[in-house]
Design a protein around this nucleic acid. Structure first.
Lengths: 292, 292
DNA sequence: CGCGATATCTGACTAGAGTCAGAGATATGG
DNA sequence: CCATATCTCTGACTCTAGTCAGATATCGCG
């Protein structure tokens, strides 16, 4: 079967089958909207946050909350501090109802697995993980952004925290060679920044600050950031690109080697580096060519 | 991640992602119901069939057809023969609209694949095929039915037609040893019979008429039918079960061998058989134990 | 305090999706 | 030919989901 046909067939089958799950899932004599709210309230939440998370109209949400309040499942009270914002909390009955919803959802997930042999179960679960991972990978977006912006600073602080933990002897930004100017690329998943990378505009340009959030690893985001930075370098007319890395970052070295970087003698005095790499760029070639 | 949690996570991610596809898919300024009808009409169809396929209320479907008729996309005419039944057909405009729908659906399937590398595309497509196959396998139902019933006769006629084509020298039912009485199991997928198998009540009992529709192969249906027949044999207190098969049915032999059947000398005069198998049943054991 | 911004709520409205009870035309068995 | 069943259609209705325009309360700031 051809690829596109395969995807369409998957969509049909899965929406039908999972749709059936969702139908039962919501079948608590309560509209779907109300169930979704009940689910999302979880711990006490601001109405404002709820609205953002479920992207509901304020009037609509208000009415849904009135319904749930009427059923004695939630309480809505003016928040502490700002008394315009109101806080929703589950009552005991609400928590019980939410637990029922949870159990029901478990049951229905189990109903997918029940008719299968153990081997088939393993296959299905593995394949589901792969599909989920790759569908998620597909919606990661890369943008060149201001390195001083919120998203960039957020990524950098998580990056520095991580390497401070992983490097032998920790990491202090002031000691490392800086990324001061050049291109800064941020990867986002559903708006949330989940990775970054920089191309420092020295001659030849250097890759710096490559990082992918732990929860987004395995999606090929690092490879895409690298390819994007290389593209910028090629556009700027560069023939060579360089980078250095620490010995504990095994996964990064693996990425660089498989992307065609070769190890060279140290070309700078980066105190946190153990390996130095270089790659000769051919115009029109990149690590992960986009397809037509 | 635990299996059930994995399935739930898959459901969330996929419904969100594929749901987005469906939203655009239906976004033709036309309600979803109308699009679904437009899609299903395809070649000319009885209104009655359409209703069954989409499981719509007759009044509702009637109204949807009026809408499409108003847009000049379909024609509804009294059928030939029975003039109560009406026949729906696409007009030229309707076919064009359907082609647009089709192209749009292709585009959106492609949008899933576009950001992925070739290797990732292959992985995704493979994993989707696996998920689809195993989710479908999960809704196959086995029931013991009257061997003279519609479903059984339907399976048997397809079975005989298939082996008539595959056997060297064809197959004639009158020449073969009969299945006259015993248990007849039918496998159904969404109500459609897609496989069968029989347990002839001789001593020891014999497996006969094992068949799975080509479109349902690879779902483990044969194995389940076999296990079900063995279960019946065990319940009837039998220690041994026998069967014979033709040399061209390689996949069947593979199934029998992997299910613990061992080849023995011919025990009957079945003219279409080349191999004879037997298996000793242990109470409480089956080929594909159901899980708690 | 007054002003503009923010957060929530209420009322009025729309559209989609579907149900249900007949009505009317047509078939089929006796 | 008649009674009964079948098929489709129309009209009247419900429920869910969601939008939009204010009304009201509260906050932060000058």
């Amino acid at each position: 079967m051809e690829e596109v046909e395969r995807v369409r067939s998957f969509n049909r089958t899965v929406t039908e089958r999972v749709g059936a799950l969702m139908d039962s899932y919501l079948d608590f004599g309560r509209p779907l909207g109300a169930s979704r709210v009940l689910w999302e309230v979880g711990a006490a939440t601001d109405v404002r946050d709820l609205r953002a998370r479920l992207s509901l109209d304020s009037g609509y949400l208000s009415r849904l909350l009135r319904t749930l309040e009427g059923e004695g499942l939630v309480t809505v009270e003016a928040g502490t501090g700002d008394r315009r914002r109101r806080t929703v909390a589950l009552t005991a009955a609400g928590r019980a109802e939410r637990a029922r919803l949870d159990a029901r959802s478990d049951d229905l997930a189990r109903s997918f697995l029940a008719p299968l042999s153990e081997r088939q179960t393993r296959q299905l679960v593995d394949a589901m993980a792969t599909v989920e991972r790759l569908l998620t990978a597909g919606i990661v977006e890369l943008t060149a952004e201001d390195p001083a912006g919120d998203a960039a600073r957020h990524c950098l602080s998580r990056y520095f925290a991580e390497i401070d933990e992983r490097f032998d002897g920790g990491f202090r930004e002031a000691v490392a060679l800086p990324f001061d100017s050049g291109v800064f690329v941020v990867a986002r998943l559903r708006g949330e920044p989940i990775g970054c990378g920089a191309l420092k505009d020295v001659t030849p340009p250097e890759i710096k600050r490559m990082w992918v959030a732990p929860e987004a690893r395995g999606l090929g985001v690092g490879r895409r950031i690298l390819a994007e930075l290389e593209r910028h370098a090629v556009e700027a007319g560069t023939a060579t690109i360089r980078l250095e890395t620490n010995r504990v970052l095994a996964e990064a070295q693996q990425l660089y080697r498989s992307a065609g970087y070769v190890e060279v003698e140290p070309f700078n005095a980066e105190p946190y580096a153990h390996y130095w790499f270089t790659k000769t760029l051919k115009p029109g070639t990149s690590t992960n060519p986009s397809r037509s």
